[in-house]
Write a protein that binds this DNA or RNA. Structure first.
Length: 271
DNA sequence: ATGGTAGGTACCCTA
């Protein structure tokens, strides 16, 4: 089973790139963020033609929006409203695999970016981000009691480790890498003993990025990246991890997203 | 220290 996450930054604009991604990677499940599309305008017919018969979408006009596209049927789908808003940032789908009695839960997340100023007293967006991560930590702690194997993936908008950013020192006061955000994300990770599936394969002392700003003349030359997109798995899934890829080449596709697709392979078969 | 680019929408928001 191959599962992939991508902040696509407008699904309607980037349908040709989504098709290219399918041709190159053939994931079984694709989790998208920032689809920026109300559900009635989502290009579902194209997605079905590309081989994804099962879809769970939750979008709105202009902002945010998440989607799960799948070749594997869902046993359950969920929409979660977070911190008192209905802003399309968390959906889940459950799939049955042969290896487990319990369903595997897939959680597609788009954590708020948090604005520019890392101080909640002057920037509400930063407060919203911190509260969102706090709420997820509490919610996962409870949901974990189901005993279901779980995968959480998406654009978390936080680069927690020193080598998840191009300069740890220069980004300590930049939203996405501040100590308070890292502390909250770490608490969310501890809530369910989540394992970072990408760092499972990439050593902590090795630079690793999934996002490069549009504002650099030459993203590859300056290489000022951050690892904002994550795939986490619970303990029972760790022995099933067989591979990973970060499609940095997608940053050079025509009209690219500023995020690149991130994927893992698990030796699980649909039931 | 500053401003740089992109997408969606409607002349400005968010990233």
């Amino acid at each position: 089973m191959r599962i992939l996450t991508w902040n696509i930054n407008s699904v309607r604009l980037r349908m040709p790139l989504l098709k290219k991604l399918v041709r190159e990677c053939a994931p079984d499940m694709i989790c998208l963020q920032e689809t920026k599309t109300p559900d009635d305008l989502f290009p579902l017919r194209d997605v079905e033609k590309a081989g994804y018969a099962y879809t769970h979408i939750h979008g709105m006009k202009s902002y945010n929006g998440v989607a799960i596209l799948s070749k594997i049927p869902f046993t359950t789908t969920e929409i979660h409203h977070r911190v008192g808003r209905e802003d399309c940032r968390h959906i889940a789908a459950h799939v049955q695999v042969a290896e487990f009695k319990k369903p595997v839960q897939i959680h597609c997340l788009y954590i708020p970016a948090g604005g520019d100023v890392p101080d909640r007293t002057v920037n509400d967006k930063f407060g919203h981000k911190l509260d969102f991560v706090d709420e997820m930590a509490g919610w996962f702690a409870k949901e974990g009691k189901s005993g279901d194997p779980m995968i959480a993936l998406g654009d978390f908008n936080i680069a927690p480790l020193e080598h998840d950013v191009w300069s740890h020192k220069q980004l300590l006061d930049v939203v996405s890498h501040t100590p308070v955000e890292v502390e909250k994300l770490t608490a969310m990770q501890d809530s369910l003993k989540w394992h970072d599936a990408i760092r499972h394969f990439v050593p902590d002392d090795q630079k690793c990025y999934t996002w490069w700003s549009y504002r650099n003349r030459d993203w590859k030359k300056s290489n000022r990246g951050r690892r904002l997109d994550h795939i986490w798995v619970t303990k029972t899934l760790v022995p099933h991890l067989t591979g990973h890829d970060i499609l940095a080449a997608a940053r050079d596709w025509e009209k690219p997203s500023d995020h690149v697709p991130v994927m893992i392979d698990l030796d699980l078969k649909a039931a």
